[in-house]
Design a binder for these strands. Structure first.
Lengths: 214, 214
DNA sequence: TAAGTACTATACTCATGAGTATATAGATGT
DNA sequence: ACATCTATATACTCATGAGTATAGTACTTA
């Protein structure tokens, strides 16, 4: 009998916890889309709530305030980038190979909702505490990228130069994808990522010894 | 007698017009600094007015509304870029030489107040009309850059590729300068511009036939 | 010197939206 | 059955800041 009881309306505590998490996530997803489209200030929590058929106080059941929602969005985006960067850093291959892989993953994330939010959110939109954590996370990512650049310079796969400035230049081009990528456009995130990375790796001047794929 | 009359408190109409223009400009300069630092929404016109020892209604004597002020700021920034781009496009040299010069000027502008404002302002912060003009101006600049890229591909000074995507990648890296440039930092705008452009032109992979300066 | 114009201030209005006080319905545990 | 806890809604409060109505002052011109 119990084996055929398909779907009781009563949930076990574990399931209820999971449902709560899912609702929280749904709120974040709805919010990040508004933030990306209209900006943080121009998004009212009433709008977010209405889009999910609930009301504002419900949101306050899952989040302390609006700032926390924004912070969670950028945190998710940055966490994704950091994990990709860490994984790649630890992988094998030359510095250039690792950096190429890292940039590709980075670029793809920039076309996703939470990645976009990272680029579209300015420091001053976050609360004081959020801002500090935001900067710390961005710094961490920057340092991973810079380390990979330095590895490449050391093993000769990347030309010599100012690693800090190079890192900023590369991540800048990648970050900006979030400002022009159009999901309805002709190119997929992967195509865009590949094209961007190719330009950054090879530069624009023609190469005598041009190789397809690094 | 008139020749020694140093500074009459009475101005001629022309001078008064000029003074009006100067005041308008002073307001724009004060405003753009607040916008860059705190963001458009977080900047109150009371703050802007107070910083120049006047009150809010005075601002409305020079501008119709807050949106117009923001638009004028981004317009000035974009106008600067466009003029630099047009001048360079018409200059001599290979496509690559022109593009290099264009990117350098572009990068330097990105470290100035109005240039920064262009990058830091999102479409949705402008009024509907402002937004349309903003996009049109950005498109115009993009097309100049893209034409120069295509010239370079045609004359062989730039490697073959998707001109649109390359343009976005390059301008992205340049635009992002406005997000990390620190006037109190160790590098001057010119140094940053040169470093960025070098990375974008040469890429990061080492070049067999490396030349200093394109 | 009278009328007009340019510029600025004081003291408002008004909309918006974050956040809250309070109530309720249902599910859970004793 | 009763006390609780969770999730949600209704109906507020309250601060902020854009924009304005009104008035005064100083300079200009006839």
């Amino acid at each position: 009998m119990a084996s055929t009881a398909r779907q009781s309306p009563w949930r076990k505590p574990v399931e209820r916890e999971r449902e709560r998490g899912e609702k929280r996530e749904a709120l974040l997803h709805a919010a990040v889309q508004f933030f990306n489209e209209r900006g943080f200030h121009a998004t009212s929590l009433d709008d977010v709530a209405t889009s999910l058929n609930v009301t504002k106080p419900t949101i306050y059941h899952y989040f302390a305030n609006k700032d926390e929602i924004l912070f969670e969005c950028v945190r998710l985006g940055l966490e994704g980038i950091r994990q990709a960067a860490e994984t790649v850093e630890r992988s094998g291959g030359s510095g250039l190979e690792r950096l190429t892989a890292l940039m590709r993953d980075y670029a793809v994330i920039m076309t996703k909702d939470f990645g976009m939010c990272v680029t579209r959110t300015a420091d001053h939109e976050l609360s004081t505490e959020g801002r500090a954590k935001f900067r710390a996370l961005k710094l961490e990512i920057d340092q991973i990228v810079r380390r990979v650049v330095e590895v490449g310079m050391a093993d000769g796969s990347i030309g010599q130069g100012n690693a800090k400035m190079i890192t900023f230049t590369l991540t800048g081009a990648l970050n900006w994808i979030a400002r022009w990528y159009d999901p309805d456009g002709p190119s997929s995130p992967e195509e865009i990522a590949d094209a961007c990375v190719a330009t950054l790796v090879n530069g624009i001047a023609p190469r005598a010894n041009r190789k397809r794929k690094a």
